[in-house]
Design a protein around this nucleic acid. Structure first.
Lengths: 101, 101
DNA sequence: CGTGTAAGGAATTCTGACACG
DNA sequence: CGTGTAAGGAATTCTGACACG
């Protein structure tokens, strides 16, 4: 159904290209993943694949780090955002439920 | 100025991923490049990078090949399209020239 | 805590060529 | 003409660890 994952969300970019675009080192990018700030896909053989959206998030993370924010704090913000997303999702399913019940 | 190359046009995808998405073999993809049907970027070390737009074009090429169209013919169509683009571009620069002269 | 680096292995990509047709 | 494949080399990516602070 939701076959049309937009170009922005499709995880198809290797870490080398991400490095080049963001200016961040591979080490940093992998570290932010370890700290659960970013979630690349993996190919069967284990290479990381990022989306343009991931790249945007990496730039935001980099800014915060430069401002002295710790990865732990950054993660909290992400969780908060996701909670909002979840609420939206629940509202949607609520509406759908009502519509058909 | 035109920094905002859209996600669709940015050449950031490796040939392995293109293979996976299109279902075409590396051999085919490289062959279509040799026949000047597709124009990936190259990293400094020589690896090919494709855009989502390239992937779309590859699928179109694959369809035509299956229909028995030869690469030579497919290239003609591409040149024809580019000519139309050029005309559009000339019209644009014509308008701009007028506006400021 | 955040990041650099050397280490060794595994998987990827590249090119030019031989093959079939 | 379009495509598969084996060949050998070069560049990439991966992980776990040591280092500094």
């Amino acid at each position: 159904m939701d076959n049309s994952q937009s170009y922005r969300e499709k995880k198809v970019i290797g870490i080398g290209t991400v490095t080049e675009i963001t200016g961040l080192s591979n080490r940093k990018i992998r570290y932010y993943e370890m700290r659960k700030l970013i979630f690349p896909d993996r190919t069967p053989s284990g290479t990381r694949k990022y989306s343009f959206s991931d790249i945007e998030r990496l730039m935001e993370i980099a800014e915060k780090i430069e401002d002295g924010v710790q990865t732990h704090e950054i993660r909290k913000d992400i969780v908060k955002k996701e909670k909002h997303q979840m609420i939206k999702g629940q509202l949607n399913s609520h509406f759908h439920t009502n519509r058909y019940s």
